[in-house]
Write a protein that binds this DNA or RNA. Structure first.
Lengths: 344, 344
DNA sequence: GTGAAAGCGCTAACAC
DNA sequence: GTGTTAGCGCTTTCAC
């Protein structure tokens, strides 16, 4: 026995009920000025009474716009990404857009599938933060053939020619290292991420330049590259602390790796920040609550989301070619000083 | 000057190119056995060459199914919810479904709007965890008139008659309090949440029953109700510790409130767990990394997501009325013992 | 102020 | 093995 598929109410049903045509109903529902108030009221009354709900799919097919924005992030459970999403939603919802969120789990294949899913859903825009595992950008470059705006944020590749929104990773890193210098650290190491991602390249560049600026020697042994997960943080720290001249500070390019570093140091009874000072990156929720609290770089995540969404709105509303120079927006980052680096 | 809106390729374009009809192209793309291999190959070659992409909107309009699942959660930045989402995605994607995620930010109005947005997008199912601020369920009850499955998880109201997936909050709380008793705690207080949410009612019931089972007195002063945010945890703990006979253990119905409690106790130099033992609820990411690490209840979040998605798949595939008894699935919870409660 | 008709892109029943 | 045709629900141009 099959459950009866009670059909949903359509404008045609309302039209029949009132002995008018579907076009009249459509116009009435959209407050077209050419429709009399009497008709409008009648239509709206029935619509309300019957729980009529416009079929967004049909409108979308007709208008070519779904009023849906697709967002692909590596994961939603990082404070940074969920705040960006919240910022996007805030602005997008105000303009009548929905947001469709996909998680790539930092996986290249999943990212490709997410893109396909969003294209199939005919989203009006794709907002993307690239997966760690993505080294081939063909699937992203191919998006140029789609006739929709593509915006990259945080983990971007500027050379692809898409608009981007990032924070000033270079300056964030510079400020972090500068702060460590000011705390009296002399041997500052860094945990860095895979080199094909802009954010890690920039953070590394900021690290190097700060060392140079403050006339501290650059030591290749002090640069450990990894995936920057908690375990990577532990392993890398172990490696650093086994050097003949171990560092007295570590600038970690992610909060998770800093957390791993902190764990390893504590397990080995190395005092933070007295023996080794620590700085992370991203201002994740937990950084304020670990012990010692972790100094880190705030990325204005929610604001970044708002700006990304605004950028999309501009791109769709202003199809001026004059405005078509690709925008690369950089937000400034902020050093949050906490106990893990405060020696004075 | 307007950017030329280069139209996307449709099956009609491919049809023209090959001098066949759109139906043939449609069949070829869908591997209909009645189409010759030669035609299929030709069609697929052109489709690939032209970057043809099926218009999901048009298919959806035709078939009445969008292959999209709508999920509304209070927030994505809690480990619990993002893991549930990951579980849902995992199962749903395998069956060709996309997932559209909305955050209600625990706000009643936002929840209503999210529901409307999903209905407009014609999702095939709505999966919902109720916002804290929601006390009127009319907008959810109204969903019965929609002809789609509605599944509630975690924060549910069983009386609404929708299928639900929850963890065993009662037993989780019972085990938490039992553990505190076994650690020698005699005066066990609890931080509880607003009463209209099942999860907090159940956790409170588990607390009371455990006290009774272990012949400990129930003291109303030891039950503090709040929104269970970090600040609430602080305030409530202050209140508890100001009692003539302050508690020697606090079972917190959320990890965030436990974090607040921990902060207040540390600020006031009260030793955890020696003077006051602490247990949280949810096994959020940070609980393993605060100091002392927080004992908590794991909610099998990813598994919960998988089960929710499987439940949806069953509901859509099996429209048997015989199967139509509302399912209320309960998963078992797990006590994770850490330093914050380990006295022995 | 309202109706008629066409069409968005795709699918599927029915023909041959 | 392929074509014809109709229609999913809505919007919109053109009529009157």
């Amino acid at each position: 026995m099959i459950i009866e598929t009670s059909k949903k109410y359509t404008i045609n049903d309302i039209a029949k009920e009132l002995n008018v045509t579907a076009s009249t109903v459509s116009r009435a529902l959209n407050d077209n000025p050419r429709i009399s108030n009497k008709t409008k009221e009648a239509v709206k009354r029935i619509a309300a009474a019957t729980n009529y709900q416009v079929n967004g799919i049909a409108s979308a097919l007709q208008s070519g716009r779904t009023y849906t924005i697709g967002v692909i992030v590596p994961t939603t459970d990082r404070s940074f990404f969920s705040s960006v999403i919240r910022g996007i939603e805030e602005v997008a919802n105000k303009s009548g857009y929905n947001v469709m969120i996909c998680q790539s789990n930092d996986n290249y294949e999943a990212e490709k599938e997410d893109i396909n899913a969003l294209l199939k859903a005919r989203v009006d825009c794709i907002i993307l933060s690239v997966a760690k595992q993505t080294i081939d950008y063909k699937h992203i470059i191919d998006l140029k053939k789609q006739n929709i705006p593509i915006i990259l944020f945080d983990r971007v590749n500027e050379r692809l020619g898409f608009p981007t929104v990032t924070i000033d990773d270079y300056n964030g890193a510079f400020k972090a290292v500068e702060h460590l210098v000011q705390q009296g650290c002399k041997r500052i190491a860094t945990l860095t991420g895979i080199k094909h991602l802009n954010i890690f390249r920039e953070r590394l560049r900021g690290y190097k330049d700060a060392l140079e600026y403050y006339k501290l020697p650059y030591n290749e042994d002090y640069v450990v590259c990894s995936d920057l997960r908690i375990d990577d943080g532990k392993t890398s720290t172990k490696q650093l602390m086994s050097l003949p001249h171990p560092p007295d500070a570590i600038f970690c390019a992610s909060d998770n790796s800093a957390l791993g570093a902190m764990q390893w140091l504590k397990e080995n009874n190395i005092k933070i920040p007295q023996e080794v000072a620590l700085v992370g990156f991203a201002n994740e929720f937990f950084t304020a609550y670990v012990e010692p609290a972790l100094t880190t770089i705030d990325q204005c995540s929610q604001e970044m989301g708002q700006i990304v969404a605004q950028l999309f709105l501009e791109l769709t509303n202003n199809k001026d070619l004059t405005n078509n120079t690709t925008k690369n927006i950089t937000l400034s980052s902020k050093l949050i000083v906490r106990a893990s680096s405060l020696r004075k």
